[in-house]
Amino acid sequence: MKKKGFYWASITEKTVLAIAGLFLILFLLVHLGINLFLLPIAENHQEIFKEAAHFMGTNPVVKVFEVILMAAFIIHIVMGIVVQVQNWKARGKRYAVYGKSYSSFGSRFMIHTGIAIFLFLILHFINFYFIRLGITEPIAGADVTAPAEEHFNELAIYLFSNEVLYSVLYIVAFGFLAVHLNHAFQSAFQTLGLNHPKYTPTIKKIGTIYAIVVSVGFTIIPLYYLITG
């Protein structure tokens, strides 16, 4: 039973969770768009990556978005845990024969895939983002000079070419991300009340396509450097 003093309605919590999630969904597209230039898709792909990294690291508008992004991460994670704890409490005693009712695979494992993605995020921040903030050091063997973000391409290529474990961890994490996103996309629309007999099937399809594009897109990068060494 929820306390009276500080009360957020279940739907308010879900709405906040969904809006933060949708922001993260948008961010992933930008992130993927830049990261694809780690691959030799254009002759000067490394320069394009550096230019984009420079823009992301210095543009004042992006700086504002960086703060919003971090807030979105924290809100999404905290709210996800709050909602999940309430859900576990609501069941009480568990069934002996559990959950034969139809429900989509992803929807049953949002907290589990979420935790896996969170653990990956810590590793990813140690590998990259925290270096920029001066909290962590680049992995031994990689040569990174300031400003760090403009050398993230060399760092990423070094990491994926030389550290099989990291490549595998990244690829596994994208698998979890795909499952999470497939449910998340259409779920966010439903939570915000956007359900329509004509458009909802299309939203579900876009969600699945989005989940595939993002996870496959990110997977190709470590896979390419893992194979080509």
Partner: peptide, 8 residues
């Protein structure tokens, strides 16, 4: 509990 949109 809250709605997780599992649609069960």
């Amino acid at each position: 509990g809250n709605c997780s949109n599992t649609y069960a």
